[in-house]
Amino acid sequence: MRFEVLMADTAERFLCEPHQSVLDSMERLNRQDIPVGCRGGGCGVCKVQITHGEYLRRRMSRAHISAADEVAGIGLACCVIPLTNLTLSVVVGPNVPPPQLGAREHS
């Protein structure tokens, strides 16, 4: 069964394939609703706040997602597998600072 993801901030919606992570499904649709990093739960780039719905979690780096975060519905979209329709928003993580190399390009 496919479930719908609603991006709370933009009201954009997309469908998730069964047993696939939110980020996987988004990338397969060539969408860019959520920033993509390592896709393995390690880098913290795709952090989201889930406000509605049920989901499974794959193991995520404790450096980015604490036990309290998990309870609060914060997760990495590459590790979140929907069990119902989900509503979520992107968390711009203070723990993903731009490297000085990249920062200079924008200045």
Partner: peptide, 9 residues
């Protein structure tokens, strides 16, 4: 490439 520069573990 933003990812190459900023994605680390």
């Amino acid at each position: 490439n933003e990812n190459f520069l900023s994605v680390v573990t």
